[in-house]
């Protein structure tokens, strides 16, 4: 993986974030009649942040340390993030506990390469534990399966 490009990409993201904050903060008053306005501190913070990011960019252009990425590892991460997003989207439809049980099974079986029985056991066991602690003991109302409502 091109590590220099990813480092510059991350710095570009951080700088874009800082610019967004800075431009957005301009619509708030710098000074109000009673003292500093809503834009006072955000402008100073965004300014300091951008200066720090630019200093980092200059350091990087001079040749910063290389960051190593493992291709297989990055794929495992991408799959896990995708599974987390899918579980979040599925939560209002199938409920939180079933979503988590599925998520744990998929991560254990396909990302961490455990056996199917171990993965099923862990996902069911931990789901029951979560329901017992949070649902029964702490009284948390989890989202229910869409089809079971009413």
């Amino acid at each position: 993986m091109n590590t220099r490009a990813t480092t510059f990409g991350f710095l570009a993201f951080l700088i874009a974030l800082g610019l967004t904050f800075l431009i957005w903060s301009l619509q708030y008053d710098y000074w109000a009649s009673f003292g500093p306005g809503a834009g006072f501190l955000p402008r100073w913070l965004a300014g300091g942040y951008l200066i720090s990011c630019l200093a980092l960019l200059v350091n990087e252009l001079r040749g910063g340390p290389r960051v190593e990425f493992d291709g297989h590892g990055v794929r495992r991460i991408a799959v896990t993030i995708g599974l987390m997003a899918a579980a979040t989207l599925a939560t209002p439809v199938i409920g939180l506990i079933p979503s988590l049980a599925l998520l744990m099974f998929l991560v254990a079986a396909f990302v961490e390469k455990n056996g199917v029985l171990v993965s099923i056991g862990v996902s069911i066991g931990v789901s029951i534990f979560i329901f017992a602690v949070f649902g029964l003991w702490l009284g948390v109302q989890f989202p229910e399966m869409y089809f079971f409502r009413n």
Binding site: T80, M84, A87, T88, T91, L96, S99, L100, L103, M104, F105, V107, A108, V111, E112, N114, V118, S119, V122, S123, V126, S127, I130, F134, L138, V140, Q141, F142
Partner: peptide, 21 residues
């Protein structure tokens, strides 16, 4: 250890959800 990551993710999910339901 072999199944820890999925379990941590599940606890993180429950933790985040219970903040504001």
């Amino acid at each position: 250890d072999g199944v820890l990551n999925g379990v941590i993710i599940a606890f993180c999910f429950v933790g985040a959800y219970t903040l504001n339901f």
